[in-house]
C-alpha cells in the first residue's frame, strides 16, 4: 500500500461504505474477526509482482475497461452533455435560463433550503451514527451482528416502501403523534414539513454514515486511549484528544457521502414534504415533466450537478490528508 498511496486512497474515497458491506460481512463471516480486515490485509500485502509481468499484462489492461467506459459515455456522458447544452440553448442560445434561475427569489429559497436540509440531515446522521458505530466496535460478536443487521435491514426493503411507511407513521393521526398526544405534548405537525423530511431522509441515509464510521473505528487501537488514561487524562479528555481525532476520517467520509446523496434526494422529499419543503430535485422534475421546459430544468440540474462536484472537490483533499495521517499512525 505504501507504494501506491494515491491509488489506495482513491479506491477508498467513496466506496468505504460498500467495501464494508462485502458479502462476507453481510453473511457474518468476518464480523467476528477483529481489526480492519481488508485494509489491514492490503497493508501487509507483499509488494506487487515484478515489473516485467506487469508490463506483459499492461497491453490488455486498458482494453478491459473499454466496454464499461463506452457505456458510461453513452448513458451518462452524452445525456449530461445534452442537459448542459439544452440549458444554454433552449429556447435560444444564451444565459437566459441561468439569469432566470438566479433572478427568481423562489428558486434561491429552494436552493438554500436544499443545502439547509442536507446539512441538517448530515448533522443528524453524525450525531446518531457516532455512538452507534462506536457501540458496534465495543460489543461482543453476537450483539455486533445484531447491530450490523439493524443497519442492513433498511436496505432489504425498497426505499419507496420505507418512505411510504414514514408517511403513515408521521401523519397527524399516526402512531408518533398519538404517542406525543398521550404524553401530553399535543399534536406536532410532522408530515409535509421540513422536520418530517429530515426525519425520513436521515433514516434512509444513516447506514451510509454508520458503515464508513464503523470501518474506521474498527481500526483504532484502543490501547492508545488506555495509554492516555494511564498518563492521567480524564475519560472525556482521552476521548476528545485521542479517540475523536482518530475517528474523524470516518466522520468526514460518511458526512460527505450523506451530504451529496441528500442534495440529490427526490423520492423522500416528494412524498414526505409539502409545498414549503420542496427541494431542488422536485423543481427540476416539475420543469421537465410538467412544464416541458428543458432549458430551465436543465439549468437547475446543472446548478445541482456543479454544486455536487464542487463539494466533492473540496472534500477530497480533506479526506485524503486525513487518510494519510491515519495511515501513518
Amino acid at each position: 500500500m505504501r507504494h501506491f498511496p494515491g491509488n489506495w486512497i482513491q479506491a477508498r474515497e467513496i466506496p468505504l461504505h460498500i467495501r464494508d458491506t462485502h458479502p462476507c460481512e453481510v453473511f457474518g463471516v468476518s464480523i467476528s474477526q477483529t481489526g480492519l480486515a481488508s485494509t489491514a490485509e492490503a497493508a501487509s500485502e507483499p509488494a506487487k509482482p515484478p515489473p516485467r509481468r506487469r508490463l506483459h499484462l499492461a497491453g490488455n489492461a486498458l482494453w478491459l475497461t473499454v466496454p464499461a467506459l463506452l457505456l458510461l459515455l453513452g448513458v451518462v456522458g452524452y445525456p449530461l452533455l445534452t442537459i448542459v447544452l439544452r440549458s444554454f440553448s433552449e429556447p435560444m442560445w444564451g444565459l437566459q435560463n441561468y439569469v432566470w434561475f438566479f433572478g427568481t427569489p423562489v428558486n434561491l429559497v429552494v436552493l438554500q433550503r436544499t443545502f439547509e436540509v442536507s446539512a441538517w440531515v448530515t448533522l443528524a446522521c453524525v450525531i446518531c451514527a457516532y455512538p452507534y458505530a462506536y457501540m458496534m466496535t465495543a460489543v461482543g460478536p453476537l450483539l455486533r451482528m445484531l447491530l450490523v443487521l439493524c443497519v442492513l435491514v433498511p436496505f432489504w426493503v425498497s426505499g419507496v416502501v420505507r418512505t411510504m411507511a414514514w408517511v403513515i407513521l408521521l401523519q397527524d393521526s399516526g402512531v408518533i403523534n398519538s404517542a406525543l398526544r398521550w404524553a401530553g405534548f399535543g399534536t406536532v405537525r410532522l408530515i409535509r414539513t421540513q422536520q418530517g423530511v429530515v426525519i425520513g431522509m436521515t433514516q434512509v441515509l444513516l447506514p451510509f454514515m454508520i458503515l464508513p464510521l464503523y470501518s474506521v473505528m474498527r481500526g483504532i487501537d484502543l490501547r492508545l486511549v488506555q495509554a492516555a488514561r494511564s498518563l492521567g487524562a480524564r475519560p472525556s479528555r482521552a476521548f476528545l484528544q485521542v479517540y475523536l481525532p482518530l475517528s474523524l476520517p470516518g466522520v468526514y467520509a460518511g458526512a460527505i457521502i450523506v451530504f451529496i446523496l441528500a442534495l440529490g434526494f427526490y423520492i423522500t422529499p416528494a412524498l414526505l414534504g409539502g409545498p414549503r419543503s420542496t427541494m431542488l430535485s422536485t423543481l427540476v422534475q416539475n420543469q421537465v415533466l410538467s412544464l416541458l421546459n428543458w432549458g430551465r430544468g436543465g439549468a437547475m440540474g446543472v446548478v445541482l450537478l456543479v454544486a455536487t462536484f464542487i463539494l466533492l472537490a473540496l472534500a477530497a483533499p480533506l479526506m485524503r490528508q486525513r487518510h494519510r495521517q491515519g495511515a501513518r499512525r
Binding site: V76, L304, T308
Partner: peptide, 11 residues
C-alpha cells in the same frame, strides 16, 4: 454521485 434527477432528465 451524480444527482439522480439530473441523470434521469439527461437519460
Amino acid at each position: 454521485v451524480v444527482p439522480g434527477v439530473v441523470l434521469a432528465i439527461g437519460i
